[in-house]
Nucleic acid binder design. Structure first.
Length: 866
RNA sequence: GGGCGGUUAGCUCAGUGGUAGAGCACUUCGUUCACACCGAAGGGGUCACAGGUUCAAAUCCUGUACCGCCCACCA
């Protein structure tokens, strides 16, 4: 009878088993039936340096959920995973390893270094992918891609060459973010803005003609060595007659001009700004406008160059101290103030970023952005939540050139070759470059491309582009992109630009932005601070499905999600509840029951709820509103199927003459529920599905169809009457509990007056009521009224009369209070006039009920008052 | 400086005009053969604040405060 199923669900037994079974059955690959609608996701590639964190444990199962859902709905689904070489992140990890071994990249050279990185990748690169398997992600591993695979790399170079030839990529001198430790330019996303307490130093720059001085303020005094001007606002009265004069740059004894420019804010400090074009993006603009020289003061390691004269060779911070001291000695320091300085820090090295003028490769994003803006405005690509439409558009409209070159080794080397006569051509190889240039090539560009350049091709390079593969034809454009909000601009925008430009079509239709997973206290999880929760250890103790449910059931339009392990325990309990309820059904059903011709009210009620649940869940999944789907499923299963239907049907199940109908209803409900729950809890549902005695079921739940709940399972009348029955049942239980003040045996008899709508059976099946009678008892009883039904439980004299009266009076006070308020409202002519008629009608009925209730309460109080 | 999100029960959050909801936690009761990772009954909220619109506001409008995130060239 117990069919061998233990009383607790053991996640560790099921999870590995079913994952392997699915994979062996080839279920992670798209259906070969070309007639089916397609659903495709190219999964955001995790870094090869990565290991799983809670954000991943949400993001990847979310994609798995969508894939599994669409599969059940009958689509041919492709979920294509892969990895990103993550240039700067990976290179800095390997550099660190080399340093620990007492060597460095510079020492072993480019080729040996790259070899080392590849070695490291094969060693530990697949860790995170295996962790995704552990989470149950049904991804098509046979199509797995890596951004440095040969074919992928060729696609990257082809794009570069194409854009170079079309003038969309060009070389230029700009002020970029320079990381002095990693010695490369870095993108804005690889930097972090902070404010630190520092000093603002006011320095006097004397006029060359001896007519006094100008005071400038700076947070980086050492940059003065490369100053080429001082700027003031043209409208600034204080300098009206001084513009054009020359100043003597202290310490360097160089003459620099006082220029008028719109950049300085006259309200700030003295209104005069020192101009260092090579080390500040604003100053650079001023330098360009006034055609000023741009001496570079810092080298790649942020040491002072020859341009710094006597300070050459010093580190910038050392130079800063010396310069302030020297100026002090000269009496040129006006004052030094404590000041909150905004600084930019490299995410990878932690070092303060130096703005540095250097020669880099740039991509003309403003040009590429044009079609994107139109597309989003047209609704070609939609964001979820939709507020991101505007945020995205705003950024696209203000987009700037993109520095695509990195001074790294790990990545796609820029395919630009220089000829002996100084020209640059882009080509796939040295030979091709010579042919293309018609000249001798002397060297190839050393820099590599920004990681985002290659990941921007992800939706189509993974499918074999630039070849016209079958996958591309079938699955591009993809359906949904799931990502976190931090990389909308850096990654999503690039995929859009590259997709529209190179494929002539959007890369995906929907972009879903998921919540940031925070700690329980609302703070960020930080790996370096050790405040993160490790998903793998949670999976070990509570199971992958419980973790998935925890995160997915909190996924909607919210921007943050607080993770609490307690919630995963609740989710585990839910798994167990599903396990045991199904176990109960299996203990009572040994073969497929036939669909009955006649249903009782409770059967119709459950089927009706099932029907409604299916509609809710489907709509919720369709709108990425996973939390509503989970809520509907939880409520249906625990609150309706378990709490009510199973209990109600027990007497019928125990009688061979009546058991078949509830058997069929239970099996129908369980099967449908498992299917709907499957995208969230794939392992548990598969395990249970395999036990179900269903004729002609699919080999795997994973490959089954979405449940078909016919609309004739909708029974409004039975729903309403059963709800009333439940209310009465709860009322009787409450009545029982209210007299349980003293030890009580089961109630021998309960009375009722009023229409039970077929609920007699439900009430008498309650084991604690031995007999149910219609009418009113002659003896003393406690009573209450629920849903228009009077309930009485005879009590003899074993009761605390005072306590009972007190609680009756409290109830009376409460009801009277509500009654008076409602009455007042109904006496207000404006309410009766202006409110919707059905509202007024309803309120009148409520008032009548309240009046009846009050009368009864008064009677009952009298009954117990001596 | 600009923009966005949030503020509802002890905790985590649903709830877009009609007398406040869920899960957990808490209190009391209960080991009747699916499940104690369970069941039953309870207690608990002037819906951040101030105005306004409306017969009616957690819900719509305006403003304020606090928390968080994003963007930004103030030395």
């Amino acid at each position: 009878m117990d069919n061998g199923m233990p009383t607790r669900y053991d996640a560790s037994l099921s999870e590995a088993k079913w994952y392997e079974a699915w994979e062996n059955a080839g279920l992670f690959k798209p259906d070969s039936d070309l007639g089916k609608p397609v659903y495709a996701i190219t999964v955001p590639p995790p870094n090869i340096t990565g290991s799983l964190h809670m954000g991943h444990a949400l993001c990847y199962p979310l994609q798995d959920l969508l894939g599994r859902y669409r599969r059940l709905r009958g689509d041919s689904v492709l979920i294509l995973p892969g990895q990103d070489h993550a240039g700067i992140a990976t290179q800095s990890v390997v550099e660190k390893q080399l340093r620990a071994q007492g060597t460095s990249g510079a020492q072993i050279g480019r080729e040996a270094f790259i070899e080392r990185v590849w070695e490291w990748r094969t060693e530990s690169g697949d860790t995170i992918l295996n962790q995704l398997r552990r989470l149950g992600c049904a991804f098509d591993w046979s199509r797995q891609r890596f951004t440095l695979d040969d074919r992928y790399a060729e696609a990257v170079l082809k794009v570069f060459i194409d854009w170079f030839d079309r003038g969309l990529i060009f070389r230029g001198k700009r002020v970029v973010n320079w990381d002095p430790v990693l010695q490369t330019s870095v993108s804005d996303i690889e930097t972090e803005r902070k404010t630190v307490r520092g000093k603002l130093t006011y320095i006097q720059y004397p006029y060359a003609d001896g007519s006094g001085h100008v005071v400038i303020a700076t947070t980086r005094p050492e940059t003065m060595l490369a100053d080429v001007a001082v700027a003031v606002h043209p409208s600034d009265e204080r300098y009206k007659d001084k513009v054009g004069k020359m100043l003597v740059l202290p310490l360097m004894n160089r003459e620099i001009p006082l220029v008028a420019d719109v950049y300085p804010d006259p309200a700030f400090g003295s209104g005069a700004v020192k101009i260092t074009p090579a080390h500040d993006a604003n100053d650079y603009q001023v330098g360009v406008r006034h055609n000023l020289p741009m001496p570079v003061l810092l080298d790649a390691r942020a040491k002072i160059t020859e341009a710094g004269g006597p300070y050459a060779g010093l580190d910038r911070l050392e130079a800063r101290k010396r310069i302030v001291a020297d100026l002090e000695e000269l009496g040129l320091i006006e004052k030094i103030e404590e000041y909150d300085i905004p600084i930019v820090v490299s995410e990878r090295s932690g070092e303060v970023i130096e703005p540095l003028l250097s020669e880099q490769w740039f991509c003309d994003q403003p040009k590429l952005a044009e079609p994107i803006i139109e597309a989003v405005k047209r609704g070609d690509v939609k964001f979820h939540p939709d507020r991101y439409d505007r945020i995205f558009l705003e950024w696209m409209e203000n987009i700037r050139e993109w520095c695509v070159s990195r001074q790294l080794w790990w990545g796609h080397r820029i395919p630009v070759y220089f000829t002996d006569d100084g020209r640059a051509v882009a080509a796939l190889s040295w030979e091709e470059a010579e042919k293309k240039a018609g000249a001798k090539i002397v060297r190839q560009e050393e820099d590599v491309l920004d990681t985002w350049f290659s990941s921007g091709l992800w939706p189509f390079a993974t499918m074999g582009w630039p070849q016209e593969t079958d996958d591309l034809k079938r699955f591009y454009p993809t359906s949904t992109l799931i990502t976190d909000r931090n990389i909308i601009n850096l990654w999503v925008a690039r995929m859009m630009m590259m997709g529209y430009d190179l494929m002539g079509e959007k890369p995906f239709s929907d972009v879903m932005i998921y919540a940031t997973v925070l700690r329980e206290d609302g703070k960020r999880m930080s790996k370096s601070l050790g405040t993160g929760v490790d998903p793998m250890s949670v999976i070990e103790t509570l199971g992958a499905d419980a973790l998935r449910y925890t995160l997915l059931s909190q996924t909607g339009e919210n921007q943050d999600l607080r993770y609490s392990e307690r919630r995963t325990e609740d989710a585990r309990n839910f798994c167990n509840k599903i396990w045991n309820a199904t176990r109960f059904v299996l203990m009572n059903v040994d073969q497929t029951p036939k669909e009955p011709s006649e249903l009782e009210a409770s059967d119709k009620w459950l089927l009706s709820r099932l029907h409604l649940t299916e509609r809710k869940v489907r709509a919720a999944y369709d709108h990425y509103d996973i939390q509503s789907a989970c809520q509907a499923l939880f409520h249906f299963f625990w609150g309706e199927l378990c709490d009510w239907y199973i209990e109600i049907s027990k007497p019928r199940l125990n009688d061979p003459a009546t058991k078949e109908t509830p058997q069929w209803v239970l099996l129908t409900a369980i099967e449908a529920f498992l299917k709907m729950m499957h995208p969230v809890m794939p392992h548990l549902t598969e395990e249970l599905y395999q036990h179900l005695p269903l004729d002609g079921k699919a080999a795997f739940l994973m490959s089954a169809d979405w449940p078909n709940i016919p609309s004739y399972y909708s029974f409004a009348e039975e729903e309403a009457s059963m709800e009333r029955v439940f209310e009465v049942t709860r009322g009787l239980r409450a009545l029982r509990a209210s007299i349980d003040l003293t030890p009580m045996k089961p109630i021998p008899v309960a009375y009722y007056q009023g229409a039970l709508h077929g609920g007699e059976q439900v009430l008498s099946s309650q084991a604690w009521v031995q007999e149910l009678r219609e009418g009113k008892p002659n003896e003393r009883a406690v009573s209450s009224t629920v849903a228009g039904v009077d309930l009485h439980i005879p009590i003899g004299d074993i009761i605390d009369v005072e306590k009972l009266c007190a609680s009756l009076r409290m109830e009376l006070a409460k009801v009277t209070d509500n009654h008076d308020k409602l009455k007042l409202r109904l006496e207000n002519p404006q309410f009766v006039e202006r409110a919707k008629p059905e509202i007024v009608e309803r309120e009148r009925a409520t008032l009548a009920d309240m009046e009846a209730h009050i009368t009864k309460l008064k009677e009952r109080i009298l009954l117990f008052t001596p």
